[in-house]
Design a protein around this nucleic acid. Sequence first.
DNA 1: CAGTGGTCTAGACCACTTG
DNA 2: AAGTGGTCTAGACCACTGA
Lengths: 251, 251
Amino acid sequence: MDVTEFLSPKEWLGRSAGPRYVQLRRRLEEGISSGVLPPNSSLPPEREIAELTELSRVTVRKAIQELVRQGAIEQRQGSGSFVRAPVEKVEQSLSHLTSFTEDMKRRGKDTTSKWLERGVFMPSPDEVVALGLAAGDSVSRIYRLREAGGQPMALERASLPLDILPNPTEVTTSLYAVLERNGLRPVRAVQKISAINLEPVEAELLGVAEGTAGLSIQRTSYLETGRVAELTRSIYRGDAYDFVAELRLSS
Amino acid sequence: MDVTEFLSPKEWLGRSAGPRYVQLRRRLEEGISSGVLPPNSSLPPEREIAELTELSRVTVRKAIQELVRQGAIEQRQGSGSFVRAPVEKVEQSLSHLTSFTEDMKRRGKDTTSKWLERGVFMPSPDEVVALGLAAGDSVSRIYRLREAGGQPMALERASLPLDILPNPTEVTTSLYAVLERNGLRPVRAVQKISAINLEPVEAELLGVAEGTAGLSIQRTSYLETGRVAELTRSIYRGDAYDFVAELRLSS
DNA sequence: CAGTGGTCTAGACCACTTG
DNA sequence: AAGTGGTCTAGACCACTGA
């Protein structure tokens, strides 16, 4: 069936089935799941949908906006609106401390990093407390966008005491590999997971719509000696990640 | 400072600081964090804000909508728009298998459940597979909205084989307490956590805006014998929960 | 009943992409 | 330059709340 015909309002637009933008959104969802609107195909221009459906463009935009928020559709100004290909989910263990790079390699995906910040800085108050720094100590920071299999997956912002990572530019792929070479790989970590709606900047870096659900993870890692080695604040794409944990009766 | 005066556009509405709805949203955020708009106070009516700011009502609504989505403001049709009181976050362990009821009691919060479904049903294909049911077996289902300290916290949908929970209406507060009485308390569980944007129905039950980030948790629990005791699919409020896990180097 | 938010329209101009 | 999405307006009617 043709998209134009599929959106022709005779078939589906009723008067007592809720707001029209909801009806249009549902129609578009059907189109996507039924294959009339396959992944990566483009929607008709908003103005054309408005004409076809006999709705105003504002109403059409409201319907599409909801789908953009859900991650089903991507809009590019000046270009058009496109059906997004669904993403394959990746599972990550919540009981084993693993390296992103090593983890993805085991899954047969190659990883790349886009550097957003990498160097030695004056610590923020948060960092002083979490890393147990003395007055005047500096921190090494690495902030990057991590990609796997060509897809952006997570924003990772790590801070380490300068003596644990004296030369942050030495890190090219795996941070843990660099630490291990110096005999300073963390053996234990505590992490806190929560759900957030992505801010515009984060969403853009991760290639999803503003407001999409993401996982915010704050992790503190410890060396064998018990010293804090690393404070990491990451944001993972909610549509690309499942975190898996095994629980036992209070031991 | 008076709200009316605070929103008077002379002070903040410029021409080259991005879209006007973004500028208004930021101004309202400032008002909330600075105390000009305290928790539970009401905003001026949309029409009045439009007049004050010399913006159209559509633009005002767009600014407010974003704040509603973030959970900062609540709108009630026919009544008004109100600043929401921030929620205190609760932390939950990801390594100990605990009961919601017991967990909250330890924190000094009383829990209540609103029952959405409770009884014996024909299993869905998902349930047959996850619980290892035989053809013709039924399942006990309990589906409830869990509240703690007067705040809705999570939607919990549990399915159990009929012989493990023969009488689902027997569950009034703690499911695990009922199982324990029969010597069938799970000792181990595997759970999968991901972030989702809440659907309208879920959002309404949890008292937050549609599209707010939430945590979707699917858990399979096992008895000491290794048998599957329970399949639980829950949705937690992202703004009310932190999940905490301890990780160790691959053991 | 008056006042509030919820939906909807027709039309305009701007900002960006693409041939 | 043409076509797309992004922003914005003024005004209308509906649905719900609360005094």
